[in-house]
């Protein structure tokens, strides 16, 4: 056990070092892209706590990301009593607002079992976009809200792209450690007990309600932080910034990567990035295949591939790519959570 702990700590440190040197190795634009991947990674991290450790499923985490994004947009553009808040400081607030929203969903979610929860959260994903349309004077409606341009604060010498990269991955690292501690500690063990047998956990005196709601709130907090960062990076917020399908992507990426594999979550986050931001490129890559000639203006191809890959992976590797990797390489892969 102690050896494993040491390995995990070592893994985290190596990761920190990798994060720190990465911008020196890649172009500024790539750093920006990697920052975006980091945002999806944060959201997936939250979702993995929810699904992997309390067995709840949420198809609505795109909405929590949107809540985070809107919080940041409102605070930094409208301000509070005329005082604009610097976007950096809105990030924790966005997390808390989304977390509170998660708490509000998490409480009724206690009474819903898996499928119903999936339905309700899917409903949240689909109907959330109506909220900014309804309160358009406040949230900007379809035309949206324009945030200030991304720039490096405090007179730091980094380019804005590198700045958002460091900001995102710095936060991601902190949240990863937090998740790691959470999962290793009592809450994590409790959640696992709940996931494996709710009835057994309840009869051994574990308060299901508290831990499941906590897990929901925490995962919504992560999504809110991710959404806030995303809005800051884009400098713009409207209902289409977080499309309905993003919620599906998140769950799908989690399934694809495997809920408890760090590497898997990175793979999943990258997949979402490509799907949301690089659709035309994917179509062009495919056009290099013989006898394929697709119009890049028709953006369906990435979804077709992602959907097909998802189905195939779930059929042949029910624990996701991460789970399969882990079985292949055993203790070599850097593990996010201990399995035992």
């Amino acid at each position: 056990m102690r050896l494993k702990l040491a390995l995990e700590v070592l893994g985290l440190l190596a990761l920190a070092a990798l994060i720190a040197v990465m911008p020196q190795l890649v172009s500024s634009f790539t750093a920006y892209e990697m920052a975006t991947v980091g945002m999806y990674f944060i959201a997936l991290l939250g979702l993995s706590i929810l699904t992997g450790y309390s067995g709840q499923i949420s198809l609505g985490h795109g909405a929590f990301m949107a809540i985070g994004g809107y919080t940041t947009a409102v605070l930094s553009v409208n301000g509070v009593y005329g005082h604009h808040i610097r976007d950096l400081w809105t990030i924790p607030i966005a997390g808390v607002v989304a977390g509170v929203a998660g708490l509000l969903v998490g409480i009724p979610a206690l009474r819903l079992s898996g499928l119903y929860l999936a339905l309700i959260t899917f409903g949240i994903a689909v109907s959330f976009r109506q909220i900014p349309l309804k309160f358009d004077h406040f949230l900007g409606g379809t035309s949206g809200k324009v945030l200030s341009l991304l720039k490096t604060p405090f007179g730091l010498s980094a380019t804005p792209n590198n700045w958002i990269y460091y900001l995102t991955w710095g936060i991601a690292f902190v949240l990863l450690v937090a998740a790691w501690l959470f999962v290793r500690g009592k809450p994590g063990r409790t959640l696992k007990a709940i996931r494996d047998s709710e009835i057994a956990a309840a009869s051994s005196g574990i308060s299901l309600a508290r831990y499941k709601t906590l897990a929901f709130a925490m995962s919504a907090f992560y999504a809110g932080v991710a959404g806030s960062l995303y809005a800051i990076a884009r400098g713009f917020m409207n209902p289409d910034v977080f499309p309905i399908v993003l919620s599906v992507y998140l769950v799908a990426a989690l399934a694809l990567g495997g809920v408890d594999s760090f590497l898997g979550l990175i793979v999943g986050a990258s997949a979402i990035y490509v799907l949301v931001n690089r659709t035309a490129d994917v179509t062009q890559w495919i056009n290099h295949l013989p006898a394929v000639n697709l119009n890049p203006q028709r953006p369906g191809m990435p979804d077709v591939i992602f959907g097909a890959v998802l189905i195939v992976v779930l059929i042949i590797l029910p624990t996701g790519v991460g789970g399969a990797l882990r079985r292949l390489f055993g203790p070599l892969t850097s593990r996010l959570y201990s399995k035992s």
């Binding site: 499923i57 399934a255 953006p299 369906g300 990435p302 979804d303 959907g307 189905i311 779930l314």
Partner: peptide, 23 residues
């Protein structure tokens, strides 16, 4: 398999069909 797996497979199918229609 677990219900969640079936749900996610149908989600994958939804993505696939949606993309296929666009294509």
């Amino acid at each position: 398999g677990p219900v969640i797996t079936i749900v996610i497979v149908t989600l994958g199918l939804a993505l696939l069909l949606n993309g296929l229609m666009s294509v």
